[in-house]
Write a protein that binds this DNA or RNA. Structure first.
Lengths: 339, 339
DNA sequence: GCCTCCAAGTGTTACGTATAACGTCGCTTC
DNA sequence: GAAGCGACGTTATACGTAACACTTGGAGGC
């Protein structure tokens, strides 16, 4: 019968079981074998249960010097992609006795400022998918183990990076369109300063350049359906020959492009082809279903967590990009024959 | 020059500034006015900056007895709805010096087991949108302040609840359809044991019962586009008069219904009307745009956090449901005239 | 000249836990 | 019969911080 107003401590449990606090810690920490008798251990466990004892995590973290908690900084939760990343990371973390705390960067898919102001949990490490340079240097200065997701390996100040092979995905999309006969392409680009989007533009240009007579036009839009719609409409109502395909930086942009094309009276894929990137649920909800690049978000999260565990244990994280896969659906077809 | 291998502590800062650790704590805790001279305070701040000092949160939490961190348990991150809830909650939290840690319940939108096994941060309180009874009683037993989101006020063991006025939303949808002349309705229900969905069914039935000659059929589907498609196809290919409208428990189910109707060769809204609930980005990405109920997710999150703050401060949380709004778009029209 | 008061700090403690180091007892072994 | 040893614990300590209680040196009042 300790004080009932405050939570019971291990000392309260010890008193109730008639043992020392150390014994309680031993038993509950599962380190009692050969140090405490089975009957005593049983008594301790019962006392803990009766009192509803929960260890004070702050005290444990302080004592241990680590928290077995890592932070996952994600740019936004407005698609299921990062839900998958979290799921994968959390699964691997759980297998190693770690917890994952999410920090959705408020500015959407852009640079994240200081995640610690908000996610104020004590942390052992950070997995970040997009982060402002100042926040990055702050973390590096803190010596906090860090893994960057989908970031420029050259610009990450020596932090480990884990990347999807976006370049290959764009290559596959472009090849698919070129094979169908497309030559004039509108690139609907995310208007966000992020390496993952720069890669798309670079790789698209590189692949197109291998075929003579090709032409890329670029439209920039914020990552929202309405923004993409507006940008697409604007781009397609300018003079000059109309592109026969729209390559979108992600599926959400593609959904906006669909709306724009519908309003312009263009049929997909007869008049114009559209491609996305992500393979969200959205991709099969729209009509026609979207040709896109499937990213394995959970695998991405798993690799990120594994890399962080490696860093935490002083090992060298595995390198190598995660493969992606082109999924051809109904939104791509050969270009219309010139009338 | 203290040990460089480990992070500097307030004692290191004190030594560097030539003061006591207590003075460092006062200065950095902004409690130094009238206790430390301006020049000394300045010296302390400089030393802290030079050493790259970051307070040890575990130690602070232990000392303070609270963490100013609350946990937000959300059922899933596969729609932007809970991203909005988080955003709202985090904003209000930040205004009060609190942080919010997200715990996405792994089982999707179903009951959440023990969030603490995974989100192992030390917590001051919990906001939970859907939670298994055992986890609920565990939290109540811990005396951990708790606010339930969209939960049965009667079944929450005395925890505060904050609800959207879903019942009114369903009432508005049903009235809208009845006014258009619909009488036979298919209810595409989420196959998930959650109070928020039970309310939908109950309210739909109640409102329909006020008009003679009405008929409700129910199809159950998991909350996924494919699941909804399958359930809708199955329900509409059974014998008997075909419903003239499909009322869906949320927008995602509605997107699945769209796919099913497209495959069955039914035109929306000429042959059949469809309604959703949530007003996700998806609602305007599909064609025709979806008539649905707009839920203000951010406001929901704000109210949840405010209620938790009230509980934490021993005040009585505000009650009253958050209003919702019917958004009529192109997916609803009068039923086809019987041939 | 003595008392009071205030600014400007310092010394010490406690938060709850995990663990290293240390006892004690009974039994075996040589 | 002394030494050794395993089983079963306990005592003591440190983690880094915030805050209470205390000290000191001078300024000011009377």
């Amino acid at each position: 019968m300790a004080r009932s107003s405050t939570r019971p401590t291990s000392r309260d449990v010890a008193q109730a079981a008639g043992v020392s606090q150390a014994a309680v810690s031993l038993v509950l920490g599962d380190k009692w074998r050969g140090r405490v008798s089975e009957t005593t251990a049983q008594r301790v466990r019962e006392a803990a249960r009766d009192l509803g004892y929960r260890p004070n995590l702050a005290a444990r973290n302080l004592r241990l010097g680590h928290t077995r908690t890592v932070l996952l900084v994600v740019p936004a939760l407005t698609t299921e992609f990062f839900a998958g990343v979290y799921t994968g990371a959390a699964r691997v973390a759980a297998e190693h006795g770690f917890g994952v705390v999410l920090y959705p960067s408020p500015e959407g898919i852009g640079p994240a400022r200081d995640p610690f102001a908000s996610a104020q949990a004590a942390l052992d490490g950070v997995i970040a998918s997009s982060m402002a340079a100042d926040a990055l240097t702050a973390i590096r200065g803190d010596q906090l183990p860090l893994v960057m997701l989908d970031s420029d390996p050259a610009g990450s100040l020596g932090a480990a990076t884990v990347n999807l092979d976006i370049a290959d995905g764009v290559r596959q999309v472009t090849t698919h369109l070129l094979d169908l006969g497309h030559r004039r392409i509108l690139h609907l680009a995310a208007d966000v300063p992020s390496w993952t989007f720069e890669v798309r533009a670079k790789e698209l240009a590189a692949r197109m350049a291998t075929t003579p007579g090709t032409d890329i036009r670029t439209a920039r839009a914020p990552i929202s359906i309405d923004g993409a719609q507006a940008a697409t409409e604007a781009a397609l109502t300018t003079p000059g020959p109309r592109p026969t395909a729209v390559v979108c930086d992600d599926d959400k942009l593609a959904a906006g492009a669909y709306k724009a094309l519908r309003r312009l009276g263009l049929r997909i894929p007869d008049d114009i082809s559209v491609t996305g990137l992500d393979d969200l649920a959205l991709a099969t909800a729209i009509d026609p279903e979207l040709t896109t690049v499937r990213l394995d978000a959970e695998l991405f999260g798993e690799h990120g967590m594994r890399a962080l565990l490696a860093v935490l244990e002083g090992r060298e994280p595995d390198s190598g990009d995660i493969p992606v896969e082109l999924v051809v659906r109904g939104s791509t077809a050969p270009p219309p024959t010139p009338a």
